[in-house]
Design a protein around this nucleic acid. Sequence first.
DNA 1: CATAGATAGCAATTA
DNA 2: GCTATCTATG
Length: 754
Amino acid sequence: MSSQQSLLDGLNEPQRSAVTHSGGPLLIVAGAGSGKTRVLTHRIAYLLAERGVRPGEVLAITFTNKAAAEMKERIENITGARVANAMWVMTFHSACVRILRREGNRLGYPSSFTIYDSADSQRLMQLVCRELDLDPKRYPPKSFSAQVSNLKNELVDYDTFAGQAQSDQERKLAEAYTLYQRRLHEAGAMDFDDLIMVTVNLLHAFPEVAEHYRRRFRHVLVDEYQDTNHAQYELVRALVGEGGPDAVVPPAELCVVGDADQSIYAFRGATIRNILEFERDYPDARTILLEQNYRSSQNILTAANAVIARNAERRPKNLWSEQGDGPAIVGYVADNEHDEAAFVVGEIDQLTDDGVCAPGEVAVFYRTNAQSRVFEDVFIRTGLPYKIVGGVRFYERREIRDILAYLRVLANPEDTVSLRRILNVPKRGIGDRAEAMIELFAARERISFAQALRRAEDAPGIATRSLKAIREFVALLDELAGLVPDSTPAEIVEAVLQRTGYLSELANSKDLQDESRMENLEEFVQVAREFENTFTAPLAEDQEEAGPEEEAGEPTLVDFLEQISLVADADQIPDADEHGGVVTLMTLHSAKGLEFPVVFLTGLEDGVFPHARTLGDRTALEEERRLAYVGITRAQERLFLTRSAVRSAWGTPAYNPASRFLDEVPKELIDWRRAESTIAAVSSRPRMPSVPSRGRPRDVPTLSPGDKVTHDSFGMGTVLLVDGAGDRTKARIDFGADIGEKDFLVKFAPIEKL
DNA sequence: CATAGATAGCAATTA
DNA sequence: GCTATCTATG
């Protein structure tokens, strides 16, 4: 058994105070790399071991599944799995789903409600806007969707908003919001933001429900508190309870951890206010500062401190380390993004060859997903193993979403958005017109789309051919639905793939993409199998404490769908220890919470990072700076800062000046490998690209015999001879036996030098 | 009337 | 460079 001593071993003074603090609310201001997860897990273990807290009384909330899983694992290492399983260690969204599955019927939601992700909710908003005859130019559904999301993050419901709508835009938005919410409810669905807002409403509207959870959770711990938005703030308040004279249950002990300097999610409603004013919100709160950094060398910390110090509204904080200065930060100015990527890959090659680090210890960060493409090209070309986190995610791929839509309809037949998605996928002859007629019919009869589909005979204006297709489709759904009760998720997935003809359509296609689609679907079946094997049923409320034999119920389709909708696979960050691992490429946002011995921070240009849209806005610019701070503090030993003089953004090259964040790093810390670009002079005079349009303008390569090149359609080749000069340079290139030798005008040929 | 192929508009960050 | 929408065809 863990004694008090071992739980506090190896912790510094403030960390110990944070672990042992008892009584009032506690705010832990944890600088980057200051051992925050360690403090949280040890605190939980300490609660159990020294303060007689039962595991079921603990609720620990994180933002990502990855963080939740890590925390759970580290708690397990101290307390053992049985104890850890009885706690709620999960994300805001998962916790809400669990509450809502149990209590949502009080608000008219089925316990098998569907969770719409942002793509689904945008689709629904599009349908709603069309139904309201809104001109998509003046009232873009996408923007409406975003605005509704913002409103929900502020806990503004459609009624309240309709009441205060002033402008024409706002009134239209209010209409759309109202109808959108009605359609969601009818479909038995909630979007991401509803998960939080509806839970808050539920806790407010039903005191007995709130009391139930307050009795249960005596310790509430929140990670990354700086990323909470207003709705999440209220949720925490509601769960903790007010206490006071007429409260039945005294307030739970609240412990939040955060770092205002790492707040990078204002765009999804996060407000720094929550952490800055914690002491005002909870008057008897205690604050503990963790400033000793255990991650990075001092040079890296000095750079990070210098950058973040430029932000006006912040409490001063100074990270320090006992690890020594470490190597200098390396700077590099590239001519263009290809050059930048080549430099990065070259350095990684060097470092791994010299045995300084394994590929798995290296990360490349960029501001926007679009920047990953060039890196990917170069990594593939050089054969360096890599993995891109984020971007087009697995669950956002079309084929996966199609199958998911089938599964959702099977779980919840009223789910209109999913139903309409699969109506004609694979193609079965139910076209736009037929769909429109069903919709019209549903509206007139005041029945759901699903019900209207089953009564298609009665709907006017549908061709007999379509009618037949619809009947077959309904029969197909019924057949599949019949399988659901006694099949496992994986079996259902396979049945859907087979019986809908989805697989055979892909198999018969000659589109190259479809091959990888099939592979993805195969992987999806694998995901389902995996799920069945690892599934542990959430313990029922009343047996949460007891039971050595954990009753793991059969995993249902609903369980499977829930896991998928809540797991973004940004959680797929590669493990460094697996055979040296692979280089990780990701956006700065996904990088939060991670650490790497070697970090490349790329695209440091004004207009890229900080992003162009933030340049005129002081608060937005401060958030960009925090993002830079997050990026820099991910590095443990070596940090590379790169920028490019020219960068092509959708076709046109842009000349960007150095990022202001680069200038904010003290000069003596940076060892410039290349400090100026040779084409920097060109940047002063704005010039149009010399090749007007005609496809994407490309850099004209300088070729000499023997060079390896790649051609867009002919592939790899070797330059045999070069003739002429300037724009009229010609090259003869050998593409091997199959294609032979060809002559090109270098200026126009789609050739790239390798 | 459904479908396939062409085209315009568009991409900041995410649970 | 990619996806939703428009247009020509079967």
